[in-house]
Design a protein around this nucleic acid. Structure first.
Lengths: 108, 108
DNA sequence: AAAATTGTTCGTATTTTTGCGAACTAAAAC
DNA sequence: GTTTTAGTTCGCAAAAATACGAACAATTTT
């Protein structure tokens, strides 16, 4: 029974991936990446979903650590969480460089 | 109602991300990346889950396009799908370079 | 031919995700 | 103080993900 549990790094990578595993959330992140200030309303305007649903997706991204919210009554400004974004960037970078699939050596 | 639907690129990125949105599947991909030939049994050996569950996760990765299976009776050999792996690598690379968060300009 | 090996599929149960409208909260504007 | 504005949270329903054991299929071995 040498079943090894996955590592903390794998957990973190999976967590970020899961957060990005939905086209709406990808669109939100890209929208945030392009603009300096993003109020909820601006974000919601771009999306073909109800306000409540948009709020949920933002909460999911926030819980994953990819964004952060700042309350500016009566608005809420969201922005990318730089620290975690960079961690995710690094994790995915390392992940994808594990297999240099242009070489014939990987996968027969 | 200028709600724009997400793009095909965003869909593809989200699809790959969703497939990687689970630590077991991340572990499977990393295991495959390290070895040239991987039979189901070898993969399952590494995982703390039932055979049926492992098979499901492999099917999920295969449906996402990240791996491919080759039947070698009575075994099945899995390997990374190089073409799609490279597409995913490129998609994530582009995605994460959209916001150079070391600059102060992004997110206040 | 019978038995063993190697995985997949089926059936089921539990949990999580997704989405919406309605109700709610908090500050701003009037 | 009442009304607007801007979002969040609640409650619900439907769908998808996760996990397992049992049954099944296909080839190899005996």
């Amino acid at each position: 029974m040498n079943k090894q549990k996955y590592t903390d790094r794998q957990m973190r990578l999976a967590g970020y991936a899961k957060a990005l595993g939905n086209p709406i959330r990808v669109a939100i992140m890209e929208f945030l990446a392009q603009r300096d200030t993003c109020f909820f309303g601006e974000i919601h305007e771009q999306l073909p979903i109800a306000k409540a649903t948009a709020s949920q997706h933002l909460t999911a991204l926030k819980n994953a650590g990819l964004i952060q919210g700042e309350i500016m009554p009566p608005k809420v400004k969201y922005c990318i969480n730089r620290e975690n974004w960079n961690e995710a960037k690094q994790l995915f970078g390392t992940f994808f460089s594990q297999c240099e699939c242009h070489k014939k050596s990987c996968c027969s």
